[in-house]
């Protein structure tokens, strides 16, 4: 059974506005690391909201279709209940700080306090989270005094503290520098290895290619492509959906034009694949000589 099962989902924020999502159906399975790509206004955020119950519970638009988390429809639960199953991290780092707690440590504890966990459990859990997010040395600082990257990891620690099996991140790297974005992705990879299901919307295809195992492309509220990053991210027509292919794909394409690439070998999306592809060609050349 998929962890998230979406069938024929359509949504618009206001009655007479054009739909933001149209007839979206997809299944996400436990332990997957899924990237969602698409131009601005392609429906990425709305899809994230739909998978965490924010849509339709907190927006009163027109909702049709069905979103099930572990077999239960989001319509049957409150956002708070769903948050035990699905953790949601948003785009702007400082908008996600609760503003109710004076230290980073207490900020992470908030979700656990709200759910009535024992004090000792809370301490243990928060320490684990801060370690994992490499924030332990900032435990006693004000959450508002952290850098964007640190605040984003704090937001992740805060939703992760209650141990939801699924994590959804809506363009979490927009306000981060490249190293901060890479850091966040490598933490997510670690979490995936621990068994979490990760769903992330992201514009930078090189990060999607390097870390995810499945990429979904949205265009005008519809699913255009869905497959392995290597398959999806190398096809030229994703550029029409407003997504730039990685520089590795472009390098290989150029190599192909200049007969430096085996014609029957698929185009790559990552650095390693590009090097491997070039090596194959070199080996065949060496063999011929």
């Amino acid at each position: 059974m998929p962890v998230i099962d979406i069938t024929q989902l359509s949504y618009c924020y206001r009655e007479n506005n054009p739909p933001v999502l149209q007839d979206v159906s997809l299944q996400i399975y436990s332990g997957q690391f899924v990237g969602i790509a698409g131009a601005n206004n392609s429906g990425k955020s709305t899809l994230c909201y739909a998978m965490s119950g924010v849509v339709p519970h907190l927006f009163h638009g027109k909702f049709s279709g069905n979103v099930k988390i572990n077999g239960i429809s989001t319509l049957e639960h409150t956002v708070s209940d769903i948050s035990n199953q699905v953790g949601l991290v948003l785009q702007k780092p400082d908008n996600q700080i609760s503003g109710m707690r004076f230290t980073v440590f207490e900020e992470v504890a908030l979700g656990l306090e709200n759910r009535g966990f024992e004090r000792e459990t809370i301490r243990k859990r928060v320490s684990e989270m801060l370690n994992l997010m490499e924030l332990s040395s900032h435990a006693e600082r004000s959450p508002f005094h952290l850098s964007g990257g640190q605040q984003q990891r704090l937001a992740l620690a805060s939703v992760l503290a209650v141990d939801p099996p699924v994590l959804i991140l809506d363009e979490p790297t927009t306000f981060l520098d490249p190293s901060g974005a890479f850091h966040l992705f490598s933490i997510l990879q670690k979490l995936q290895k621990e068994g979490k299901t990760i769903i992330i919307t992201e514009q930078r295809t090189d990060l999607l290619a390097a870390f995810t195992e499945r990429v979904i492309v949205l265009q005008e509220g519809r699913v255009r492509k869905d497959g392995s990053p290597q398959n999806v991210l190398t096809t030229p027509d994703i550029e029409t959906a407003g997504i730039g292919r990685t520089r590795y794909t472009k390098t290989a394409e150029l190599a192909k034009k200049n007969s430096l690439w085996q014609t029957d070998h698929a185009l790559p999306a990552t650095l390693n694949e590009t090097i491997a592809g070039l090596r194959i060609r070199k080996n065949t050349d060496d063999y011929k000589n």
Binding site: H57, S80, N95, L110, G111, R115, V159
Partner: peptide, 11 residues
């Protein structure tokens, strides 16, 4: 966004 962030934290 702030209110969504609060709701998904179990506010």
């Amino acid at each position: 966004q702030r209110s969504i962030a609060l709701e998904v934290r179990g506010f």
